[in-house]
Amino acid sequence: MRITRRTLVLGAPLLGVAGCTTVRPDIAALGPYISPQYAAMYAAIDTEPFPVPAVDLSRVDPVFLRQEVAYATQEHPGTIVVDPNQRYAYLVLPRGRALRYGVGVGREEGFNFQGEAIIARKAEWPRWTPTPNMIRREPERYGPYAGGLEGGADNPLGARALYLYRDGRDTLYRLHGTNEPWTIGTTVSSGCVRLLNQDIIDLYRRVPVNTKVVVRPTSSAATS
C-alpha cells in the first residue's frame, strides 16, 4: 500500500487536543511521505521518566494511525469500544464521531476478554507480571519474570496501562502501550490490547477511572 500525503494528513485536527508541538528536526528522517502533522503526533517524547522513541511510521500501516472518524454507536460519549476483528479501539465522541486508535490484539480467540468492563485503575509506566497461564504455556519465556518487571523502556506494557475490571474483579485484561510499534494492527499479544505508546498516552489522559469499556467478540477468521 503506497503511503500518500492525503492518507497521512487525516489526523491533523487532533494535534491541538493532543498537545503536540512543532515538528522536530529529526522528523525529516521518517521519509518523504510522512505529513508534518503525523510526524509531530508520533515524534519522540522527552518529558517522560523513560524515553519514548519516535514511531517509525514506515513500519505502521497508516490506517492504524490515530484519527477522528465517523462512528455510529449506541454507546455514550466517553465509552471505549475495542473491535479486535478490525484492530481498532474507539473513544466515542459526541455527534456520531470517535477517536480511532490502531491496536494489536491476542493471537488466539480463547485468550481474549469480551463484553463490558470498567477502567478501575490507571498506571503510568506500569509494573508487568505475566499471568500464571502465560507462565504455564511458555515457562522458558515468562518464568524468569514471575516476580514481575518494573516499569521502563523495556517493559512490554509500555508507557501507560488501563486496567479492566468487571463486577469488582480484575479481568487481567489491559489496554496498554508497547515497545514494539510494528505489531500494531496484528495479532500478537497474549490477550491484552496494545497501542502505540504515543496513543496510549493520549487515551490515558482523555479517560478517567470508571470509564466504560466494551470489547467486541473476536471471530476466528480475524485471528487467522
Rank of each mutant, 00 (worst) to 15 (best):
A221C: 02
E124S: 14
D154L: 09
A117G: 04
T4Q: 06
F113V: 00
A12M: 10
G147S: 11
L195Y: 06
T183P: 11
L203G: 08
T129P: 06
V55F: 03
P62Q: 03
V188A: 14
F111S: 13
D46E: 14
V193R: 05
E68W: 07
E68P: 10
E124M: 12
N179H: 15
G11C: 07
Y71P: 05
G147K: 11
A89V: 10
A70Y: 09
L157A: 01
Y38K: 00
I3V: 13
Y163G: 01
P53E: 06
I119W: 02
N155W: 05
G177V: 08
S224E: 13
I3R: 15
L65M: 12
R2M: 09
I34K: 00
R127H: 13
L15D: 08
A153H: 07
R100E: 10
F64N: 05
P36W: 01
R205A: 11
N85I: 09
R24H: 05
A120H: 10
G191S: 06
P208G: 07
L10M: 07
A146F: 06
L57N: 07
P32C: 03
A18G: 10
N85G: 04
Q37D: 15
Y90L: 11
V23E: 13
R194V: 02
G151D: 05
T73L: 08
R87K: 15
A18Q: 14
A146E: 12
R127V: 15
A159I: 07
Y163V: 01
N155H: 05
R174D: 02
R97V: 01
R206C: 01
A98C: 08
R137S: 09
G115E: 06
R205S: 13
P156G: 02
T186C: 01
D170P: 02
R174N: 01
A70Q: 13
T131V: 02
E116G: 07
Y142D: 05
R59Y: 08
F111V: 02
T7S: 12
G104N: 14
K122T: 09
I184L: 14
P94W: 05
R95W: 09
V9P: 00
V82P: 03
Q114Y: 12
L203A: 07
P53M: 02
L10H: 10
V103R: 01
T22V: 10
G147V: 01
D26C: 00
P51M: 01
A72H: 12
L15F: 01
A89N: 10
A70P: 03
P139F: 11
A12E: 15
I80Q: 00
Y33R: 05
P156F: 12
V215I: 13
A221K: 12
T7Y: 07
R95E: 14
T183F: 06
V52T: 10
V17K: 12
